[in-house]
Amino acid sequence: MPVVSVRLVVRTLSELCITVGTLIVLFVVYVLYWTGVKADSAADSQISALHHQWARTPAASAPQRSDPPAPAPYTGGKSFAVMYIPRLGKDWHKPVLEGIGVKDLQKGLGHYATTTRLGQPGNFSVAGHRRTYGDPFKDFPELRPGDAVVLTDGTTWFTYRLDNKPYRTVPSDIGVIDPVPAKSPFRSPGRYLTLTTCDPEWGSSHRLIAWGHLDSTRPVAQGKPQALTG
């Protein structure tokens, strides 16, 4: 009977459309909300694991010296530091993991394994999500020269100061994480910091870059640096 089969086709088609619509709504909920929930709990567990690890190997016994001790080699996929950027929020702090793989960036910020280690001569470079997974670098364009980027590896507080407004470039511009990036304000080798994220917020056509230099270091035993307490 043609009427019945037409009805069946229309009904099945409508049901399929509703199903696909529901799937899309669920996926949007996942991307906008659930990745953030997952990333926040992953970041929290990374940070508490770090604090646990630091508590077991007390750094306070290290004698006073002007130069911070060289950090131990980092393990891929493991967090080794916590980053604070007061400009992005008083409570903004994220773990920094070694590596920039998908899994690393789902738990926190990722350190480009090819770049130097914290506080060492060279360019300590870190990537982070602009959107999804807790939106760590959502307010990246708000960063300004002079802003503090503070990191701790459990032994030392490293205070970097930014030197440029976020610089927009293309993804293939790998020179931005060079030891002395050509487009940066720096002209001679030093202890630098590079932050990278994507631009526009939900896109991938460009990258935003912020550069900074190491301003000061301070043993953890002496308490938080002024950039965080002030």
Partner: peptide, 30 residues
């Protein structure tokens, strides 16, 4: 919904461009 959130969406989401936050060093790795 559980299977979607636990297995399907985590697989599909990295295929979208929100993850491209690094400067290129060969797309597979970054």
């Amino acid at each position: 919904v559980y299977v979607l959130f636990q297995y399907i969406f985590p697989w599909a989401e990295p295929l979208l461009p929100f993850n491209d936050v690094t400067v290129d060093q060969g797309r597979g790795a970054t």
